[in-house]
Design a protein around this nucleic acid. Structure first.
Lengths: 123, 123
DNA sequence: TCATATAGGGATAAATTAATCCCCTATTGT
DNA sequence: ACAATAGGGGATTAATTTATCCCTATATGA
């Protein structure tokens, strides 16, 4: 894994949650596991924009942070299931709050984001 | 500003909020502005780990995303004040939820993060 | 025999974000 | 004359995160 050169700030709750939730796909992974998509291949189908590789990496970090557990069934072809830990379950309402705010302000957000990303829209 | 080469996903509320809140210091900036630290120099003193430069950049993005406004007083030495917009105020409860979860699980989070960041702790 | 599904990882390149360094303006106080 | 304060930005490098490419293994079905 990549070894950090800059020590992260862990001063307050916001720093701490940032450390475990940052990562392009982590929140989505937690959410999909929460709603019952437990197997890696399912998660992949649900998040087609992410490569298999990145999902594996981010799942491993979530596991290291004790938000999910990984259960391996000794069968062929291999079967793996992720589940939220009790700790992981406690963060679901927070993710729900994030998603709800995003949904409530969807149109406005799309507008301001596109203005910034696609500068030509700023006539 | 940097011009993106990969188009961001804007499919759901989580994608959208991510676009405006990602950025190492943005959430803290919003929070400090919320609790009354409006001037750039104040914000800097509150967030000493960030350079002046990065704060300026992230403040500008928050402004472009219409979460804050920047008011310039025509005095010397210059005086500038940031404030939350009405839109920006709506995201404060979400940030509060993030911070609260982080605070509630502070010890455990510090533990799992340090295990991952400082591998030598994994005896 | 060959493609498919399942799960995973090493090595490397590309993209993105953040940090550093240095510079500018104008006034007030020493 | 010079430092300090207040706000800001260009250019460059470093750090970090994602994406790409390719390879492993076994069993089943066509």
């Amino acid at each position: 894994m990549y070894e950090r050169k800059i020590i992260p700030n862990l001063n307050c709750g916001l720093d701490l949650i940032g450390e475990v939730l940052y990562g392009k796909w982590k929140i989505r992974l937690l959410w999909f596991i929460h709603i019952g998509h437990k197997r890696p291949s399912e998660l992949q189908r649900k998040i087609p924009d992410a490569s298999r590789r990145v999902l594996n990496i981010q799942l491993k970090e979530l596991e290291e942070h004790e938000l999910v557990t990984r259960k391996i069934y000794p069968v062929v072809p291999p079967k793996v299931e992720y589940s939220l830990t009790e700790f992981g379950k406690t963060v679901i309402p927070v993710i729900a709050a994030l998603g709800q705010w995003g949904d409530e302000h969807e149109d406005r957000l799309r507008d301001v984001i596109l203005k910034q990303v696609v500068p030509s829209l700023n006539e």
